[in-house]
Amino acid sequence: MTMPVTQCLIRLHEEHHQLEDYQGGVPRWCSGCGDNAILTAVQRLCRDEGLAPERTVFVSGIGCSSRFPHYMKTYGFHGIHGRAFPIAQGVKMARPDLAVFVNTGDGDCCSIGAAHWIHAIRYNMNLTAILHDNQVYGLTKKQASPTSPIGTKSNTTPRGSYLQALNPLTVTLGVTNVSFVAQAVDWIPELLYDIVRKAYLHRGFSFVRILQRCPEWLPKQFEPWLHDPGKTLLLTHRDGLAVPPALARTYRNQVEHDPTDLDRAREIASSTDPIPVGILYHNPAVPCYEDVHGVGEVRTAEQVRRGLEAEFDKVTVWPQGGDGARAAA
């Protein structure tokens, strides 16, 4: 069915949104918190991609990062610690028509929710997952997280943390059915936006780890990288990042990386210095769980009745002399 041009224009007008249309509550994050940059990038993405606020859901767990949905003017689900992924999967399974994002932190995703994280990758549902990784627990006031570099002093590790940091990128890239992995940093907003956008456009489970500053608990964590652009490795490719010329002049440490090359992606991912920024891996061919095991078309009462009667028929005991033959048939 075609639509008259005028109606088309009216609808275009209706569906065009301003940034304010996505701005919810005033963020209560600390000043200088990297979460603010992520929020801005995501609101921009929603506007640019014309996401209808009522058909967009941000699901989060618990932690500073997980306040994110409150600051969006879309639907949101601020869940419980570590469980954002399965909640988001339920939303998506019930309503494939909704755009579903997940905001999670390094404690939420890589510690308490680690089991769900691994399986979220394997399910490969069409979700955009943003890992706000500040390498420390913020809301509970400075405890070491799984991604804290060894030696990180915190309230639970006053003499420095004991273990090597878990690398969320190599973990993700090691899981069956991985389909999109990228890394961004909060202090290069242009690339942050571009990376989040590419993640959104990927159909499947897109995992973006965003290194994010925590000025309150680990104020100096990323200083060396902020002061020396050479410590950041930009991953470029014709199917990958578009690096604006001005940025390219600052961040000269660049490498051409084909995001379909999983082995190379794993090598690059294991580098913590320089920090790789860009699309590490992208494979649009991995099937989505909701496509191979989804809720079918809308159910009608008649469909349910027929399904039910068919099952009843298999277990019905007809009165003797009644319809035994029918049951046998």
Binding site: R83, Q89, G90, M93, A115, H116, H293, G296
Partner: peptide, 25 residues
Amino acid sequence: KVGGIVHQAEDEIAACAFAIGASYA
């Protein structure tokens, strides 16, 4: 056959959270 699914989750917690997500939606 009637448009429903059984989701075998990775654990009991996820099964509950998945159901809550679907109900929410």
